[in-house]
Write a protein that binds this DNA or RNA. Structure first.
Lengths: 221, 221
DNA sequence: TTTAATATCAGGGTAAACCCTGATTTATTA
DNA sequence: TAATAAATCAGGGTTTACCCTGATATTAAA
């Protein structure tokens, strides 16, 4: 008989959480022991309310407000290095997956794939420590996995709260001048913030920024 | 005993389709008789392979590639005016819901809500013909429902295929000149297309365009 | 405590975005 | 067939975005 795998689910859409949970009900050796709607919630739960309940695998959506998937992963692994985090996403964006692996993620699944794969993935990540969907370009990723093992704390890009506020307003179609007026700052200040954002995110223009913002749930599309 | 409600599901994420289906398994009077990954698939199915199987409710994701939720709704209703289409979305964007209702949608659900609501919604839309989530600003929507009953064929915005190609390239952070070079056209031509897109979508700049493109799955975020 | 990051602002610049009017050709639809 | 929409291009315009360098005060981290 297979030993029981305790799974925790993190996704901001309750319907999806419940749906996947319901799919896993047919597999007795997989137990969903807790669920959370975002990164902050799950970090809080691990910190305070867990009551020594063993958790083997975390099923984590990448696109979440507040703390996104990889930010949350990094935080959780600081508390428990043995945790296996399985990323779940609509996007097979390479940069995205890279970030996640740098943060310590051990597997990645795409939402538009076969359902059986989620069960396979949970089993594999529990037994071997890794699982990557065949749609993920694994060869390229191996490099990142190595890098992470040598130097586990590679920085990922973070924007400051002022920068995030400006990103939001850019996405609302406000011009630099309008943003300056809205925040009681000069146009030049906003321009400086903009150029910092540009170089941090390595984007060329507004279009790249908006896609970043949507991907990271700074704004809704 | 309640009579059986035959439901068809349209969503581009198999995992979500299966999840919801699995949730509905506990409710014997609701039968998921078919599922499809996008608008084209379901239109095709209704046209050719249905074999007179009665369909009462269509559960339709709004954000899909190829044919999106409301475009598909409009097409399906041309074939069968009695079909009740229940929209499913991550977004409570008013413009979005408006488009859907103009196309003949009869109900709207948000993905981050309680699961029981999906069962209620299917039952309500089947019995009364309407269901709107309490998170949807129903008062405003009543106007659109009326308008639709008087003049059912209000135009929604459509971009031409050339325009869509340009939208994609703008989202890839290409400048007007770069797009012109890529498509072997002059800069002026691209500018004209741009200005048409701007006025069709009533947006102010690139930021608005990218959000439109992501919302309508012209590009991934 | 020293370093590094954050937040504020300025001058001066080029290239790109965005807006107007206007025109021709070719499809498509009524 | 007539009308409409799509696709191509042009001139000439203003405004905004984006890129340099450089400065200063505050705050957070090593």
């Amino acid at each position: 008989m297979k030993s029981t795998i305790n799974v925790v689910m993190v996704d901001d859409h309750k319907l999806i959480r419940q749906g996947i949970k319901s799919l896993l009900l047919g597999h007795d050796h997989i137990q969903v022991v807790h669920e959370a709607a975002n990164g902050l919630e799950i970090v809080q739960w691990f910190k305070e309310e867990r009551n020594e309940l063993p958790v083997h695998v975390v099923l984590m959506d990448m696109q979440m407000p507040k703390l996104n998937g990889w930010e949350t992963t990094e935080t959780l692994l600081k508390m428990n290095r043995n945790l296996k985090v399985l990323g779940l996403s609509s996007y097979d964006d390479e940069e995205f997956i890279k970030q996640f692996i740098r943060s310590g993620g051990r597997g990645y699944l795409l939402k538009d794939q076969e359902i059986e794969e989620i069960v396979d993935a949970i089993e594999d990540i529990f037994e071997t420590g890794f699982y990557f969907s065949h749609r993920v370009p694994i060869e390229k990723l191996k490099e990142y996995i190595k890098i992470r093992d040598i130097s586990p704390n590679i920085r990922y890009t973070t924007l400051t709260k002022h920068e995030i506020k400006i990103v939001k307003l850019i996405c609302e179609e406000l011009s630099t001048q309008e943003i300056a007026d809205a925040l009681f700052l000069t146009k030049k200040t906003i321009e400086t913030h903009r150029s910092h954002i540009w170089s941090k995110l390595k984007i060329k223009n507004m279009a790249g920024l908006v896609r970043y913002a949507v991907k990271n749930k700074i704004v809704k599309a």
